[in-house]
Write a protein that binds this DNA or RNA. Structure first.
Length: 571
DNA sequence: GCCGTTTTCGGCCCGACTGTTTTCAGTCG
C-alpha cells in the first residue's frame, strides 16, 4: 500500500507540533514543517521518486537526515520519531495547541503543571478553576477557551466562488471609507488557490484605525477578533475570517507582496534580501534605514535581481530559481482559450439548448465548443443512448450549416463502466469529434482496479479527454483512490488529454497534478463542464489552476485553432 | 535540521496584536 505524499506531510507536521511542545530547537521544528510543505507540493509521489532512484536530499529544505526519515515513512508507513514522541507526549496535545490562543508554550505548561493530556482534561481544569493559577493564563483566556471547547469549529475552507462574492461586497464597502487608496484582496485568494481559508485585504491609507473601524462596522461581521492601528481581524457571519492590513501608499508593493505570500515564498525572498545586506518586510526593502524599494512588487523583485513572479507561482516550488534563470513559464491566460470542450445541453441534464449554448460560447470570444452530453448509464441525467446521440449529431450538423465562424463539435461525456469499457459502442463514438470519458459511479474500487479502469478507458482510441480525472469534490468527496501518476503516464503513451475541470467544486486535476502532467509531457484541456450559460464563465477558474500548474498556452489543447485542434483529437 | 558568491559553523523572516505582565512572552499570519 503506497504512502501518499499528503500522509507523509501530515506525519512531518505532527512530529513538528510535538517537537515544538517538547521545547525542541525551533529551527529543527521549522525544518520539519518546511519539509512537510515541500513533500505536499511535489508533483510526483515520494514512492515513485525513490523507485526512480532520485535523491530526496536534492530537494530544497531536505537534507540527508530528513531524506532518510521520509524514505523510511514511504517504505513502512511508519515514522519512528513520531511514534516515540507520542509515547512521550499525549498525541491529543496537538489538538489542544490548535485551540485559539494556545500554542506550544502554553500547552507545555498545561501538560507539565496541570497534567492536561486531553481536551477533556482541559475542560476539567477550567471547571476546577486551576487554569488561572498558571503564569500566562488569565480570566479572558479562560473564557475564550471555554467557548472554543463548547463549540469546536472545524477548520473550514471556502470555494473561490464563495470567497469572491464575499470579497467583492467587502471591497466595495471598504472603498467607501474616506482617504482610501488601493483596496485589494491578497493571500491565497490572489494566488488563486482552489479554496481559501480566509480573506487577506490590503488597503493603502493614512489612517489605518479609520479603515479598521469601517471593517468592524461592516454589516456581515459576526465578531471582531483583533483591532489595532494597522491590522484588524474579523470573522464574518459565514465563518470566513478577514484580515485587514493598512499601510501607507509608499509601502503598497511590499505590503502586497507580504500579504500575498505564500509564507514560504516570502521567507525565501527575505533571505535573498539578507544575503545582500538588506531587510525586506511589509513596509519595503531597506538598506539600513533607507527604503530602496517598496511602492510596487515589480520594483522589489527587480532589486533582488528577479523578474516579477506571478502570484499563482508564489509557493516556493521552484519559481524563484526559475525566475533567477529567466525561465519563468509564460503562463496561459483566459484570452488564450479558443473554445470549451466539455459542455452540456437540454439533451441530458443541461438547462440550455445547444444553439443557445453555442451563442453564449461565441459571445465569450470562442470559435468552437463541444457538446458533450451524458451517456445512457447516467439515467438521472437523461443520458443519451446511441439512437438519441445519433439524432443529436444530426441536429448539430444542421446547426453548423447555419453558423458562420463558429463550430459546434459533436461529442459525448461517456461513462467509464466499472471494468473500464465505455457506456457507448465504438460505431457511434466513431461519428463524434470529441469523446470525454468520465467516472460517475463505483468510486470505491481498490486502487489497482480503479487505476486499470481509467487506463483501459483510455485504451479506446476514441477517447480524446479523460474528464475530472480524480473525481474529487472540494469539501465533499475525496479523490478516489487511484495511482494518478500511472494514469498521467498512460495518457501520455496513448496521446490522450487530461482535463482540468473548471467547476468550482471540482478543479480536477488540481494544480500539483497539472504540473506533474506538464513535466511528463502530457497535454491538458481546460473545460467548464457547463450545464448553464453562466457556468461557461468558470473557465477562468480552470485557467487559474492551470497557471498554478505552470501551464503555458502550448500545454493546453483548447488554445489551438479549430483546424489544429481537430488534427490533435485524431488518435 | 538545513545550508553556504562572506560561512562546513553559526546563523536561521519579520512584525502586529493580545493578554498578560509591569516591560513582554506568546501567538498569529
Amino acid at each position: 500500500m503506497p504512502v501518499h505524499n499528503a500522509e507523509i506531510a501530515a506525519m512531518l507536521d505532527q512530529a513538528a507540533e510535538l517537537l515544538e511542545i517538547r521545547g525542541d530547537n525551533p529551527f529543527r521544528v521549522r525544518a520539519y514543517r518546511r519539509a512537510a510543505r515541500v513533500v505536499e507540493g511535489l508533483p510526483r509521489s515520494v514512492t515513485s521518486l525513490l523507485a526512480a532512484g532520485e535523491k530526496l536530499s536534492a530537494l530544497p529544505g531536505i537534507g540527508d537526515d530528513l531524506a532518510g526519515k521520509i524514505a523510511g515513512i514511504a517504505a513502512s508507513g511508519k515514522f519512528d520519531l513520531l511514534e516515540g514522541l507520542k509515547r512521550e507526549l499525549p498525541g491529543e496535545l496537538a489538538e489542544i495547541a490548535a485551540l485559539p490562543g494556545l500554542g506550544p508554550k502554553r500547552v507545555k505548561l498545561l501538560h507539565g503543571e496541570l497534567g492536561v493530556r486531553s481536551l477533556e482534561d482541559l475542560r476539567r481544569a477550567i471547571r476546577q478553576g486551576k487554569l488561572r493559577s498558571l503564569r500566562g493564563f488569565g480570566p479572558i483566556m479562560e473564557r475564550k477557551l471555554q467557548g472554543a471547547l463548547a463549540k469546536p469549529v472545524a477548520e473550514k475552507r471556502f470555494r473561490l466562488t464563495v470567497a469572491e462574492v464575499e470579497a467583492e461586497a467587502l471591497v466595495n464597502h471598504l472603498r467607501g471609507a474616506a482617504g482610501v487608496g488601493h483596496v485589494v484582496v491578497a493571500g491565497s485568494f490572489r494566488r488563486r488557490r482552489d479554496s481559501v481559508g480566509d480573506l487577506d485585504i490590503l488597503v493603502t491609507a493614512r489612517d489605518g484605525a479609520a479603515i479598521g473601524a469601517r471593517l468592524a462596522a461592516y454589516e456581515n461581521v459576526a465578531t471582531v477578533a483583533a483591532r489595532g492601528p494597522t491590522r484588524t481581524t474579523v470573522v464574518l457571519r459565514s465563518g470566513l475570517q478577514v484580515d485587514l492590513r493598512v499601510v501607507p501608499e509608499a509601502s503598497y508593493g511590499a505590503a502586497l507582496m507580504y500579504f500575498t505570500g505564500s509564507k514560504a515564498h516570502n521567507i525565501a525572498l527575505r533571505n535573498m534580501a539578507i544575503e545582500r545586506g538588506w531587510k525586506l518586510n511589509e513596509y519595503g526593502l531597506f538598506e539600513g534605514k533607507r527604503r530602496i524599494a517598496g511602492t510596487t512588487e515589480a520594483e522589489i523583485y527587480r532589486k533582488l535581481g528577479l523578474p516579477e513572479i506571478p502570484p499563482e507561482l508564489r509557493e516556493d516550488r521552484g519559481e524563484i530559481a526559475a525566475a533567477r534563470k529567466k525561465q519563468l513559464p509564460a503562463l496561459v491566460t483566459l484570452s488564450d482559450i479558443r473554445g470549451d470542450l466539455h459542455v452540456h445541453s437540454t439533451w441530458s441534464d443541461g438547462t440550455v439548448a445547444i444553439a443557445e449554448m453555442a451563442a453564449a460560447a461565441r459571445a465569450r470570444g470562442y470559435s468552437y465548443m463541444a457538446i458533450t452530453d451524458h451517456s445512457r448509464r447516467l439515467t438521472v441525467a437523461h443520458g443519451l443512448d446511441p439512437g438519441r446521440l445519433g439524432r443529436q449529431i444530426d441536429e448539430i450538423d444542421r446547426l453548423n450549416d447555419q453558423l458562420k465562424g463558429f463550430t459546434v463539435l459533436k461529442g459525448s461525456e461517456v461513462d467509464i463502466l466499472a471494468d473500464g469499457t465505455l457506456d457507448l459502442p465504438d460505431r457511434i463514438l466513431d461519428r463524434l469529434d470529441v469523446v470525454v470519458a468520465a467516472v460517475h459511479y463505483k468510486f470505491d474500487l481498490p486502487r489497482a482496479a480503479q487505476t486499470e479502469r481509467l487506463i483501459r478507458a483510455m485504451d479506446n482510441r476514441h477517447v480524446s479527454i479523460l474528464a475530472h480525472p480524480t473525481g474529487r469534490l472540494l469539501g465533499e468527496r475525496d479523490a478516489y483512490d487511484v495511482d494518478i501518476e500511472r494514469v498521467v503516464a498512460a495518457a501520455g503513451e496513448r496521446g490522450c488529454y487530461l482535463e482540468i475541470n473548471a467547476e468550482p467544486d471540482r478543479l480536477d486535476l488540481d494544480d500539483v497534478h497539472a504540473r506533474a502532467a506538464k513535466e511528463m509531457g502530457v497535454k491538458l484541456a481546460i473545460s467548464t463542464d457547463a450545464h448553464s450559460v453562466a457556468a461557461l464563465d468558470y473557465m477562468r477558474l480552470g485557467v487559474d489552476q492551470a497557471r498554478r500548474g505552470w501551464l503555458e498556452p502550448g500545454d493546453v489543447l483548447n488554445t489551438r485553432p479549430l483546424g489544429d485542434l481537430k488534427k490533435r483529437l485524431k488518435r
